[in-house]
Simulated assay, not measured.
Amino acid sequence: MISTTTFYSSSNGDRWQMLHDDETGLYQVRHEPNAASGGRATDTLMPEFLSRSGATPQGLALQKLLEEQGAIDPDLED
C-alpha cells in the first residue's frame, strides 16, 4: 500500500506529495503540475528531491513535514 501526504500547493495550482510505499519502505515526492503546464505528474526519490529543491518553498515544506513526523531520515530511504 502507498500512503500519500500533500505537503505543498503553489498559488499556480502545482501540488507536491510525499509518497511512502509500506511494502518497500521507499519514500518519493510526486509533483503534479497544473493543467496549463501539462498536468503530467513526476515522481522523484526523496533524497534527490531534497538535494535539488531544499531551499524552494516546496523543499522547505517537505523539510518541515519531516521534522514534524520525526520518524524518518530521508537520506536513508533510497
Score class of each variant (00 low, 15 high):
R40A: 12
L62A: 02
L60Q: 13
I72F: 01
F7K: 01
L65A: 07
S51W: 10
A71H: 04
S51M: 10
S37P: 04
M18Y: 01
L45F: 06
T42P: 03
E32Y: 07
D43Q: 15
Q63D: 09
W16Q: 00
A41N: 05
S3K: 10
A36V: 07
D43A: 14
E32M: 10
Y8H: 11
E68K: 09
S51G: 08
N12D: 15
A41P: 02
L62C: 04
F49N: 00
L66E: 01
S10Q: 09
S11N: 11
L26V: 12
R15N: 07
S37C: 09
E48M: 11
K64Q: 14
P47E: 07
I2D: 01
A71L: 11
S10R: 07
D78L: 15
F7L: 02
P57F: 13
K64I: 09
Q58F: 09
Y8L: 04
D22F: 09
E67V: 00
S11A: 14
E67C: 00
I2V: 14
R52V: 04
E68V: 02
D75Q: 14
I72K: 01
L65M: 14
Y8C: 03
M46K: 01
D43P: 05
S11L: 11
R30P: 02
Y8S: 01
L60Y: 02
P74T: 06
E77R: 15
L45N: 03
R30K: 14
D21V: 05
F49I: 06
D73P: 02
Y27T: 02
I72R: 00
T44K: 06
Q17C: 12
L62Q: 00
D75H: 12
G25M: 06
E48W: 04
S37G: 08
L65G: 02
M18S: 04
S10E: 10
L19R: 04
A35S: 14
K64A: 14
D14N: 15
A35T: 07
P33E: 06
T6R: 13
R30I: 02
L26R: 08
G54L: 08
S10D: 14
S51K: 14
T6D: 11
E68Q: 13
E68P: 00
Q28M: 15
D14Y: 03
S9K: 15
H31T: 08
A61Q: 03
G70N: 03
S10G: 15
T56P: 01
S51Y: 10
E32D: 11
S53T: 08
Y27S: 02
G70K: 02
D22N: 12
E32C: 09
A55P: 04
G13D: 06
E48V: 15
G39M: 09
K64T: 14
E67H: 01
T6W: 07
S3T: 12
S9G: 09
A61E: 03
L66V: 04
V29W: 00
S3W: 05
Q17A: 12
Q17V: 05
R40K: 15
E48F: 05
Q69I: 03
N34T: 10
R40N: 11
T5P: 05
L45I: 06
L65D: 03
T5D: 12
L66N: 01
K64E: 12
E23T: 09
L60P: 00
E23S: 12
L19S: 03
H20Q: 12
Y27V: 03
A55L: 13
L19T: 01
M1T: 10
